[in-house]
């Protein structure tokens, strides 16, 4: 198998490498890729949308349909993780109950009629080995960093029209702050800030903001996602309406990405139980 794979890869790779001879030189301004469609974007993006960041314009206007499905892919991944892993079977079977050792977060299952083990018993000694002492360095650092990171992510979102940035990046940074909270404290703390239900609903709402903007354009009589028609609603001319709509759409993307990142982390880190975490 290994040899076969090697031969296959070498053969196909050789074929592709030989063929690379016919590709244009690196950075050639006259290559078809830089002369056919892209000059149109570069020349007209600002005029059409009054937004200097061409990547944002192409992302959220010219090819907004792609971007919407990109958000949908993220949403589908969130659903996939939830669907495959989440289990709530514990604690519902009756008869037994659970004792949670708060400092370590270890949960002990106590069978029907059973008693809690004694203070110095073997069970607790094995739990004590897992106990993590309060770690001031990590917790304090994260507590100081998280607000700044969150503000930064909002900046990345709001300034996406003028500088590198936009919905996906902002969403990832925002999601990272909540994951950071979960890592530095524990899953319970972050679940208290953002429950699973919130994450799920936010991710759906985020994608819905995007898709709904498109649907609104359709209902107002234009093509799907043609923001032009929103001009009277946004109290602006057509170009500015596009600019504003790009922001609206990016807000939706931010919400979706942030919520899905957090949701996937919740499910992956606790193997779907969402009682422990890292």
């Amino acid at each position: 198998m290994k040899k076969l794979a090697l031969i296959l890869c070498l053969f196909a790779g050789g074929l592709l490498l030989m063929n690379a001879h016919y590709l244009p030189m690196w950075g050639d301004p006259a290559s078809p890729a830089s002369t056919h469609v892209s000059p149109y974007f570069i020349e007209n993006a600002y005029e059409h949308t009054k937004t200097p960041n061409m990547v944002a314009v192409v992302l959220a206007d010219y090819r907004s349909y792609d971007t919407m499905f990109e958000a949908a892919v993220v949403l589908a991944a969130g659903f996939a993780c939830f669907f495959l892993l989440r289990s709530r079977a514990r604690g519902k079977k009756g008869g037994h109950h659970y004792y949670r050792h708060i400092p370590t977060g270890v949960t002990i299952k106590i069978e029907e009629g059973g008693k809690l083990p004694a203070e110095n018993s073997k069970v607790f000694r094995s739990i004590d080995a897992l106990w993590t002492p309060y770690d001031p360095i990590i917790q304090t650092t994260c507590r100081c960093l998280i607000p700044f990171l969150q503000i930064y992510s909002l900046y990345v979102l709001a300034h996406g029209h003028y500088s590198p940035g936009g919905g996906f990046q902002a969403g990832v940074v925002l999601g990272a702050t909540i994951i950071l909270l979960a890592i530095s404290h524990n899953l319970k703390t972050s679940l208290k800030r953002m429950s699973e239900r919130t994450a799920a609903l936010w991710s759906i709402i985020g994608v819905f903001i995007f898709a709904g903007t498109g649907l609104l354009c359709l209902l107002l009589g234009m093509d799907y996602l043609n923001y032009e028609v929103l001009a009277p609603l946004l109290l602006s001319d057509e170009a500015m309406a596009r600019s504003h709509s790009i922001l609206i759409v990016e807000v939706g993307v931010t919400m979706a990405v942030m919520a899905v990142m957090v949701w996937i982390y919740y499910n992956l880190s606790s193997a779907g139980q969402q009682d422990e975490g890292l």
Binding site: T132, D135, I137, I138, T141, C142, C144, L145
Partner: peptide, 17 residues
């Protein structure tokens, strides 16, 4: 300067634990 030592600390701590 803030994050890099903290990350190192966290990783080392995890290794020790």
């Amino acid at each position: 300067f803030i994050t890099s030592p903290t990350a190192t600390h966290a990783i080392a701590d995890a290794g020790r634990r």
